[in-house]
Design a protein around this nucleic acid. Structure first.
Length: 833
RNA sequence: GGGCAAGUGGCGGAAUUGGUAUACGCGUUAGUCUUAGGAACUAAUGCCGCAAGGCUUGAGGGUUCGAGUCCCUCCUUGCCCACCA
């Protein structure tokens, strides 16, 4: 017997597999499909540590089993290379981002290549490849040209909306929008092109609007809410780098994800995902059902409100409440400091100076100051203004206060200090009335006061622009009159620039490219999440130049069956990808409602000291070194054995020797193999029980217990004088997904010609799972006193008789009267005295 | 403040979902082999006790013949959200 030399074996088989295209995915056919996907990485350039491949190994083990179970497995890998990480790396190393991506991808692939992962590398995608981002841009244009029909509950072409406007204006239109002025068909036809464009922007799913954004001066870009964290002083800082972030208002491209809020929420129920992630998304979407109720305004001075077009309308304060049942206990009304009504009522407010100064102060405050927990509530009463409670016609004072948020609900509340803690705090501070009365029926009172039941969401539309160079250009241009036009020929490629470093301006580096600006192109680029919101579809048909993926491929592969990646993308990528996928389904591109049917999230691997692996702490373990010393198979086994897949685990340099010893033992079993040996019933029971267990447990990614079962099986085989070859081969097959190299070597040594990885997964033979006898536990008063071998399914009477004759039990019973006997077949008998 | 996880030997963890708690692995101890071993192999290894036996799954109650698992109260840790009406 040769020595187990992992270096030789692993290298050889990796070359052999690639040469023979063992892992190439078949084209759509009659075979059942299985799409096993890893979240594709940012090629960061820092190199991998042993924590990174945990998810890749897990999905690979799963994919390998499925391949052996005769599924047509799609298991691809690619790169999400646009966005901040690549750009930051490029700036730090003073090279072009494109070059940085090339270098980093190479490093990444080299490291991955040692681990024996069964990707079909021919399907590799890269979001920065113009042939790829052509489709990112194409999808953007589809969104730009679509709006959301709330009756049909799907996206429809914007052109159909224009037709309605031309025929009957925008009254009673069921399209989701952010526009509240009514116009007639005649008025629409008379609008200028620019005015029409402005109005349509309020309906498009990709739209431009003045929006408050989180601006980071150091990174020179706008950041999404989920890219911001609070530092230890409670200030907003960027997640990447920890730089200061402030609020500014600029013209931005946004995605109307809120149109899909209800579908994003209800779709969660159909997904086999970790409950925690689904819950995070539910909270993020934040649906609450309540009532919108108008409180008429009563002014000290005469007259109504003068709207911009000169009409006088009776002013109303529309409040949102989930507790309409408390309306009789409302004692005041509060507007957010940003509420439009405040400026409209300017002339009627008797203490305008005081009000204005409060509004200005609120604006300049960072959100974090406003929302700090221990902060005292502040506000100013609008003197000269009263609101009428429509339930009892009581006159209530009107306040502005920054504890009411402008962007949630209607930006106004009826305050019920009796039932709401925040209102009570405020009422106590300003000595406002607190009333206690019985509750009423929420629905009834809402209808009675002319309000309506509505759903509100915490989720807001997603900003879809970065003031950066390294992203997909937005495929639109503005002519001299300011009219937007689509770029007809995609891709619209990024121009070459001298400096791609952040300019610190809200425009981004592209603003410095004369030809770009004079062509009327946008100087913002798309955010990092654009390219990652549909890549799973592109893998289905990565080289198609006519469509995101061809219809035949799309209909065959449908969606991802098993998605593996980090839980940290709960409110980012995983939400955006679901949104785009639903949209693509609406326009007939995707075929399922949800992109990722089943998902499991690998836990992080921490260093031995319990901290994150980082150069800073000097605790990084490099997988290359582990592979060199112990082999890829050992690394794979150890990472699967280290603990539950979805939980944190600490790397232990001592622990890795266990799986290595295990493989040595597997290797030595070669000496015992004999074709003619007849396996005992007992051994066949253990073997088939293990096959059964692994088949079931792998389905749920419970790798650690699988490895444990394999170890137990090896111990059993070691006890045998001689081992039947076909049984040994069955064992090699169930070990193969975990340790692909050593099993391939041993499999070939036994004379097999085709790769073990395309061999057939062993079948569990039910007849071997049945045993003749079983060990049961004998308890007296619920305490274990002895154990006993009985026939399988033996009757209670028979077991009871045996137990009562047992000497040990006799001693514990010592002649007492037996009150009760509990018998659990094949498990235990409990004598109660 | 709200939501979601989790708490089991010296360590990583297992427990067929209410039925032998501590599987499997690491470590430790003893032994075998060896010039040597930080290699390999064999055995032991939750705690107290010479033993019989008793105790033990964050704490305390409860349900049950029987609880790591179910219920109640509380403590600790991690993650997500956070003045969202």
């Amino acid at each position: 017997m040769k020595e187990y030399n992992h270096l030789k074996i692993e290298k050889r088989w990796q070359i052999e597999w690639e040469k023979n295209k063992v892992y190439k995915t078949n084209n759509p056919g009659k075979q059942k499909k299985m799409y096993v996907l890893d979240m594709f990485p940012y090629p960061s350039g820092a190199g991998l540590h042993v924590g990174h491949p945990r998810g890749y190994i897990g999905s690979d083990v799963y994919a390998r089993m499925k391949r052996m179970q005769n599924y047509n497995v799609l298991h691809p890998m690619g790169y999400d290379a646009f966005g901040l990480p690549a750009e930051q790396y490029a700036i730090e190393h003073k090279i072009h981002p494109r070059r940085a991506v090339e270098i980093n991808v190479k490093t990444f692939e080299k490291q991955l290549s040692f681990m024996g992962l069964s990707y079909d590398w021919e399907r590799r995608v890269n979001t920065t490849d113009p042939e790829y981002y052509k489709w990112t841009q194409w999808i953007f244009l589809q969104l730009y040209n679509s709006c959301y029909d709330t009756k049909k509950n799907k996206a429809v072409p914007i052109s159909s909306l224009v037709k309605i406007f031309e025929k009957s204006g925008n009254k009673n239109v069921s399209i989701y929008n952010s526009f509240d002025t009514i116009f007639t068909a005649k008025e629409w036809r008379e609008f200028s092109e620019i005015e029409k464009q402005k109005i349509l922007m309020n309906y498009r799913l990709a739209y431009e609007a003045e929006a408050e954004v989180n601006w980071c001066q150091v990174l020179g870009t706008v950041l999404a809410n989920d890219e911001i964290v609070n530092d230890k002083d409670g200030r907003m800082v960027s997640e990447r780098g920890g730089y200061k972030v402030e609020k500014i208002k600029i013209n931005q491209w946004l995605m109307r994800i809120t149109a899909y809020a209800d579908r994003l929420l209800s779709g969660l129920d159909t997904l086999d995902w970790a409950n925690s992630i689904k819950e995070i998304q539910r909270n993020w979407i934040g649906k609450s059902v309540g009532s919108e109720i108008d409180f008429p305004v009563k002014l000290n001075s005469r007259g109504g409100l003068t709207s911009p077009d000169g009409e006088v309308s009776p002013p109303q304060i529309r409040v949102f409440t989930t507790r309409a049942d408390t309306i009789f206990m409302a004692t005041y009304v509060v507007l957010a400091p940003e509420h439009d009504l405040i400026f409209q009522l300017k002339d009627k407010i008797e203490n305008w100076g005081e009000v204005l100064s409060y509004v200005e102060k609120a604006k300049s405050k960072e959100d974090i100051d406003r929302t700090r927990e221990d902060k005292e509530k502040t506000g100013v009463e609008l003197k000269g203004i009263r609101a009428i409670n429509p339930a009892n016609n009581e006159e209530l004072p009107v306040w502005i206060a920054d504890y009411v948020l402008a962007h949630y609900g209607t930006g106004a509340i009826m305050a019920v200090p009796m039932h709401d803690e925040r209102d009570r705090d405020f009422a106590n501070t300003y000595k406002l009335k607190i009333t206690d009365l019985p509750l009423v029926d929420a629905k009834e009172i809402t209808q009675k006061v002319g309000g309506q039941l509505v759903s509100k969401y915490k989720m807001r539309d997603a900003i879809f622009a970065r003031q950066r160079y390294w992203g997909e250009p937005i495929p639109l241009y503005r002519d001299k009159k300011g009219i937007l036009h689509e770029v007809k020929k995609l891709p619209l490629e990024l121009p070459k620039v001298k400096s791609y470093e952040p300019t610190g301006l809200a425009e981004g580096p592209l603003a410095g490219v004369k030809s770009w600006v004079s062509s009327g192109y946008e100087t913002n680029t798309m955010p990092g999440w654009a390219g990652s919101s549909f890549y799973f579809l592109r893998y289905m048909d990565p080289k198609n130049s006519k469509a995101v993926a061809g219809e035949k491929n799309m209909k065959y592969w449908k969606n991802v069956d098993m998605y593996v990646g980090g839980a940290e993308h709960a409110t980012g990528h995983l939400l955006y990808a679901r949104f785009w996928h639903k949209f693509l389904k609406d326009i007939g591109v995707a075929v399922t409602e949800e992109p990722f049917a089943k998902m499991r999230n690998q836990g992080m691997i921490l260093a031995h000291d319990g901290r994150k692996m980082s150069k800073r702490w000097g605790n990084v373990v490099n997988p290359d070194d582990v592979v060199k010393t112990y082999g890829a198979d050992t690394l794979r086994l150890y990472e699967m054995f280290i603990g539950p897949f979805d939980q944190y685990a600490s790397w232990s340099t001592d622990g890795i020797i266990g799986p290595r010893r295990f493989l040595e033992r597997v290797w030595k079993l070669q000496n015992k193999i004999n074709k003619n040996t007849k396996s005992s019933k007992e051994f066949l029971y253990v073997l088939h029980n293990t096959i059964n267990k692994i088949s079931l447990e792998l389905e749920d990614m419970r790798f650690n217990t699988c490895v444990s079962s394999l170890m137990i099986l090896v111990s059993e085989m070691e006890k045998l004088e001689s081992l039947n070859q076909s049984d040994y081969e069955k064992f090699l097959k169930i070990l193969a997904p975990f340790a692909p190299h050593i099993t391939e070597e041993l499999w070939t040594e036994l004379g097999n010609k085709k790769s073990i990885h395309v061999s057939e997964w062993p079948k569990v033979e039910k007849k071997f799972l049945k045993q003749d006898t079983v060990k049961i536990v004998v308890q007296v008063n619920g305490k274990v006193r002895t154990e006993m071998l009985v026939d399988i399914d033996e009757s209670e009477e028979s077991v009871k008789n045996k137990v009562l004759k047992d000497q040990v039990i006799e001693k514990f019973l010592s002649g007492q009267e037996i009150k009760r006997v509990i018998y659990v077949k094949n498990r235990l008998i409990n004598i109660v005295v």
